[in-house]
Amino acid sequence: MSSDIYKDIILDYYRHPRNSGDLQDPDVRAKDSNPLCGDIMEMQLKIKDGKINDIRFKGRGCAISQASASMLTELAKDKTLEEAKALGKTDILNMLGIDPGPTRIKCALLGLKVLKLAIYGYLGQAVTDEVKQLV
């Protein structure tokens, strides 16, 4: 049921987003939107010794997309780029502790897609179809 997805923790991250805003001189940034709903999302990363040293997100959208992106920044910080690249849908669902259902899952995955776009961009690698199809 959908009100279950608006747990206090989701609302808390929506109202008080962690790691929101801009980094000074990020090593890489990536941006994307969900054409279905117009949500927009940007991720900025500082990379040091192959690890995500610092991370910020900037976005506009629903509680699910904003809270999910904010929680993801906490999850991804201090991970190696390879570890962050390996994050998938299951990690996001575990992180949220809810399943938003088929129509809202893309909201939850927008942050992950943009994070991966940033990492692929930093590494100069071609973005995989799997990443493109996340949202």
Partner: peptide, 21 residues
């Protein structure tokens, strides 16, 4: 500050079909 998509999800739970976006 409820985003339209969140509101549409909540209303859907009550059987109400509206549009958002």
């Amino acid at each position: 500050d409820i985003h339209a998509h969140d509101l549409a999800s909540l209303l859907d739970e009550e059987g109400i079909a509206i549009r958002s976006g």
